[in-house]
């Protein structure tokens, strides 16, 4: 927490935050349909940025372009100063539907990224075991995905993303397929991760409360074609502890403000 405050202080003193990821003039067309138009956005290092917007606003498209899974029609993405041409070791992805391999045990799923990087079996299993413990799944190393609850499956997805130790973590509505209580626990854990892991998080969500709760920076995207309408940086309640955020007046104000600007776009 001390570190985070120092970081903020430095950042505010400089007036500008160093970007880990920048997207410049990104456009993406699917045939006739314009999904993204001329979208530029900076993602500050070590912080969590949410992409928030109504459905169909292209937030997942943008995330996949950053991941290198989709090609932008024009524009470019830079991660740590180098141009993105495809998936890379500097980014890890957490999927909305978990994307686990059903025939592989938890430990094999978690070590998949390391396996693809050519890490030896004993070493990758040691690393995987550590992250399985870290996400609270110790004892389930040899279980299969179908034996786990939705929340536990996403913990496997999270452990897989953490185990490759990428600078940037891309999360595509990671908590939307888990139940409400699990989601709250995930959100609290995520705040801890942002604080401790010193990684840059890019987080797609459609939940206003979730975005305000977990983010250092919220980019609000508006649809058809998608563009950034507003960037909000909640600052006042981040250090008051996870239990106090939801009743902080600033938190409530921001939630209301975002809803006011989004409601006209929701049919």
């Amino acid at each position: 927490m001390a570190m985070s405050q120092t970081k903020m202080a430095v950042a505010e003193a400089d007036g500008v935050l160093e970007s880990a990821v920048s997207t410049r003039n990104i456009s993406k067309n699917y045939g006739e349909v314009e999904a993204l138009r001329d979208l530029s956005l900076e993602f500050p290092r070590g912080q969590l940025t949410s992409l928030l917007g109504p459905s169909g606003c292209g937030k997942t498209t943008l995330l996949k372009i950053i991941a290198g899974l989709l090609e932008p029609t024009s524009g470019e993405v830079e991660v740590n100063g180098s141009k993105v041409t495809g998936p890379g070791p500097d980014r890890a992805f957490v999927f909305q539907d978990f994307a686990l391999l059903p025939w592989a045990s938890v430990i094999r799923n978690v070590s998949f990224g390391l396996e693809m990087r050519g890490v030896a079996k004993s070493e990758r299993e040691a690393i995987a075991e550590r992250y399985i413990r870290e996400v609270g799944l110790a004892g389930f190393e040899h279980a299969y995905p179908h034996e786990l609850s939705g929340g536990m499956r996403q913990r496997v997805g999270l452990a897989r993303a953490l185990s490759v130790d990428s600078q940037v973590l891309l999360m595509d509505e990671p908590f939307s397929a888990v139940d409400e209580q699990t989601r709250r626990k995930f959100q609290e854990d995520l705040l801890g991760l942002v604080q401790n892991e010193n990684k840059t998080f890019i987080f797609v969500t459609h939940s206003i409360e979730e975005a305000v709760y977990v983010s250092d920076q919220i980019a609000i995207l508006l649809p058809r074609p998608s563009r950034v309408s507003e960037i909000i940086r909640p600052s006042g309640f981040r250090n008051k502890g996870v239990d106090n955020i939801r009743r902080d007046p600033e938190y409530l104000d921001i939630v209301d403000e975002i809803w006011a600007s989004l409601r006209t776009y929701v049919e």
């Binding site: 998936p87 890890a92 994307a99 391999l101 998949f112 693809m116």
Partner: peptide, 22 residues
């Protein structure tokens, strides 16, 4: 499932590895 293949690509699997492992 498309998302499994996407997962493979995101975690740097080669085309051959995607076919064999996914």
């Amino acid at each position: 499932p498309e998302s499994m293949k996407e997962m493979g690509r995101a975690y740097l699997a080669t085309d051959l590895a995607i076919v064999l492992k996914i």
